[in-house]
C-alpha cells in the first residue's frame, strides 16, 4: 500500500493523543488546574492534529461531515463518531479538572473508554480489509491499542506501567510482523484465483492494460525490498520499544523522559510507515505485482 504521510502521521499522533487521554480519563496522573490543562492540551493537540491531518488526503474535505452518517456499517464512520464523542466527553471532564478542580470520575471513565474506542475503530478500518491480508487479523487492533496505551502511558508519566505496556506492544508488534509475513499466502488469494485461469496452468501477467501507471498502481502497489524492511523493523523496534524501556529503567529525569518519548514516537512512525509500505493489496495480482 502507498504509505501516505498524512495517514501515517494521523494514525501515529492520534494514537498517542487518545492513549494519553485514556490515562487522563482514568486519573493517571490525577492532576488539576494548570498541570491538568497542559496535559489535556498535549492530548488534544495530538488527537485533533492527527484527525485534521487525516482529512488532507481527502478529495473533498469540505464534505467530511457526511462521514458521520454510516456508523451502522463503516468503521471509518464509527471512528469519526467515536473520536468526536471522546473529545467532547473528555473536554467536559477536563474542564472539571482545570476550572473546578473536581474530578468527575464517571465522565473520565467514559471518556477513557471512548478514546480507547477511537483507537480501536481506527485499527478496524485496516483490520477489516480482507483485500490486505497482512492487516486482516485480530493482531492489528491489538497492535494499535497496545501502542496507543504504551505511548499514552509514556506521556502520562506512568513509568512502570509504560515499561510493561511497551514490552507488551513490542511483543505484539513483533508478532504482527512475523505472522503478517505469512498472511498473504494464507489468504488463499493468488493469480490463479484472481484470473480463474489456474485450471489451465501456471499464470503469468503479460501486457498490462496500459503502458503508463494508474491510480491503482500508485495507491496499492508499493514494493519494499525484503532486506530493506528487515532493517527498518529492527530500527523501529529499537526506537519504539527497546530504547524507551532502557531509558525508563534509568533514574527518572525529565530530559530522559522526553528522550524516551521522542525515540518512541520516531519508532512508531517508522513502524507505521512499514505497516503501509509492507502491506500487499490483492489487486496487485492482476498486475503480476505484490
Amino acid at each position: 500500500m502507498h504509505p501516505a504521510p498524512s495517514v501515517i502521521i494521523f494514525t501515529t499522533l492520534s494514537g498517542l493523543g487518545f492513549g494519553l487521554l485514556v490515562f487522563l480519563g482514568l486519573g493517571m496522573p490525577s492532576v488539576t488546574g494548570w498541570t491538568a490543562f497542559w496535559f489535556f492540551l498535549i492530548g488534544y493537540v495530538l488527537a485533533v492534529g492527527g484527525l485534521l491531518s487525516s482529512t488532507f488526503h481527502l478529495g473533498h474535505p469540505e464534505r467530511a461531515w457526511k462521514a458521520f452518517s454510516q456508523w451502522k456499517t463503516s468503521w471509518l464512520s464509527r471512528e469519526g463518531i467515536c473520536a468526536v464523542a471522546a473529545l467532547i466527553v473528555m473536554a467536559l471532564y477536563g474542564a472539571g479538572l482545570v476550572f473546578f478542580q473536581s474530578q468527575w470520575a464517571v465522565l473520565g471513565w467514559l471518556g477513557a473508554l471512548l478514546s480507547l474506542g477511537t483507537v480501536f475503530t481506527t485499527s478496524m478500518i485496516y483490520a477489516q480489509m480482507k483485500t490486505v491480508p497482512r492487516w486482516h487479523m485480530p493482531w492489528t487492533p491489538a497492535k494499535f491499542l497496545t501502542l496507543s496505551l504504551a505511548g499514552g502511558a509514556l506521556l502520562a508519566g506512568q513509568v512502570t506501567l509504560a515499561i510493561v505496556l511497551l514490552i507488551l506492544a513490542g511483543a505484539i508488534t513483533l508478532a504482527t510482523w512475523i505472522i503478517g509475513d505469512g498472511q498473504f499466502a494464507k489468504s488463499g488469494t493468488d493469480m490463479q484465483t484472481a484470473t480463474g485461469l489456474g485450471a489451465i496452468g501456471q499464470v503469468k501477467a503479460f501486457e498490462p492494460p496500459h503502458t503508463g501507471t494508474n491510480y491503482l498502481l500508485r495507491e496499492f502497489v508499493h514494493v519494499v525490498g525484503r532486506k530493506h524492511s528487515q532493517k527498518l523493523r529492527i530500527i523501529s523496534g529499537v526506537l519504539a520499544f527497546a530504547l524507551p524501556i532502557l531509558l525508563l529503567l534509568l533514574p527518572f529525569s525529565h530530559a530522559i523522559a522526553v528522550l524516551a518519548i521522542a525515540s518512541h514516537l520516531a519508532g512508531v512512525l517508522t513502524a507505521r510507515w512499514l505497516f503501509f509500505a509492507e502491506a500487499e493489496h490483492v489487486v496487485g495480482l492482476y498486475y503480476g505485482k505484490r
Binding site: 500500500m1 488526503h57 481527502l58 478529495g59 473533498h60 474535505p61 464534505r63 467530511a64 457526511k66 462521514a67 463503516s74 471509518l76 478500518i125 477489516q128 480489509m129 480482507k130 483485500t131 490486505v132 488469494t189 491510480y215 491503482l216 495507491e219 496499492f220 493489496h281 490483492v282 489487486v283 492482476y286
Partner: peptide, 13 residues
C-alpha cells in the same frame, strides 16, 4: 469525500 476506502476494499481494482 474521496477518502479512497472503497477502492481499498475492492479486491478487483
Amino acid at each position: 469525500i474521496g477518502c479512497g476506502l472503497c477502492a481499498w476494499a475492492c479486491p478487483y481494482g
